[in-house]
């Protein structure tokens, strides 16, 4: 009898150990490369050079703390690029937010001819990625640039054009996620409002939008990060420093400088990383609700 209880006690203790400590051990092991890598970036941005993880000064001794790597902050172009990146990121938050809540609402809540076909198309469109359509989109943007008025702000080599391309390419994911959120909202309030004679647009704006605020917030964060850090589209559709974004600037910077100043490149990377990190820390709760429906089949 006694041995039995001891056995169970020991077993329970082992189980508690496994349940509480093992997850931490596993998580730490898997994340080690990231920790080490970013530790290197952090060390590198403040040192003359590094050997492995150890900072070294010019003579090869341990040490060599410097702020020289951050001298790019004096360059006015970096602030121009930051502003451009910010404009595109905010443009994406607003653009994708508005368009995909409109489309998601119609696809989730309205019955119209072609609805099913469009939903199928939205999924298939996810296969058409920016990377594969670059040449063709380039031609479209050049064409738009030739149109009077619109071309000045949304054509090739404009911040507006880049923002529009990014908004469009983000739409399939945005619409599909928003549809999932709309699917989970109760019909009662909407039905009551419609019977009282409100228009569909008014119902959408005054009743449904306040209800899916968490979903809109989650999508906004996701889009901000995308717009802020996308390199490929911005690099392909812009020429010259006036319209270049932070990632493009970073790439040119790393191309211009000699191999020795990789530490400056790392510093510039940190500079780009910091706003997103701060943004993310304050909004992570909302981002976690991106999968609105939980176990539902809505997504």
């Amino acid at each position: 009898m006694t041995t039995g209880t001891i056995e169970t006690g020991r077993k329970a203790g082992l189980q508690r150990f496994l349940g509480q400590t093992l997850p931490y051990i596993l998580l730490i092991i898997t994340i080690l490369p990231i920790i080490i890598g970013y530790a290197w970036i952090l060390i590198a941005t403040f040192s003359v050079r590094t050997e492995g993880l150890v900072p070294k000064d010019a003579n090869g001794n341990i040490g060599g703390f410097t702020l020289q790597n951050w001298s790019f902050l004096n360059d006015p172009m970096i602030w121009r690029a930051t502003l451009n990146s910010f404009t595109i990121a905010i443009g994406m938050v607003i653009g994708v937010g508005v368009v995909s809540t409109l489309m998601g609402y119609a696809l989730s809540r309205m019955n119209f001819a072609g609805r099913k076909g469009l939903l199928g198309m939205i999924i298939v469109l996810q296969a058409f990625r920016a990377e594969m359509l670059l040449i063709a989109i380039f031609q479209v943007l050049v064409f738009i640039a030739g149109i009077p008025l619109i071309g000045k702000s949304f054509g090739f080599n404009t911040v507006g054009g880049v923002a529009f391309v990014m908004i469009a390419l983000q739409l399939p994911l945005g619409v599909w996620l928003m549809k999932g959120f709309f699917d989970n909202i109760s019909w009662d309030m909407e039905r009551a409002a419609l019977i009282d004679g409100a228009s569909r647009f008014r119902v959408w704006w005054e009743i449904i939008i306040p209800l899916i605020k968490p979903g809109i917030a989650a999508l906004a964060i996701f889009n901000f990060i995308q717009g802020w850090s996308n390199y490929l589209i911005a690099a392909t559709f812009t020429i010259g420093t006036k319209v270049s974004t932070l990632p493009v600037f970073l790439n040119q910077f790393s191309g211009d400088t000699s191999l020795a100043s990789w530490n400056s490149v790392a510093a510039l990377g940190m500079f780009q990383l910091i706003p997103v990190m701060i943004f993310f820390i304050f909004t992570q709760e909302a981002l976690l609700s991106i999968y609105g429906g939980g176990a539902k089949g809505g997504v």
Partner: peptide, 21 residues
């Protein structure tokens, strides 16, 4: 009304997906 909701998105999809393909 439904196509009113759909039109901004459809325009973008037409210009930046269908035509490029």
């Amino acid at each position: 009304s439904a196509w009113g909701f759909m039109s901004p998105g459809m325009l973008l999809i037409l210009v930046f997906f269908i035509i490029p393909v």
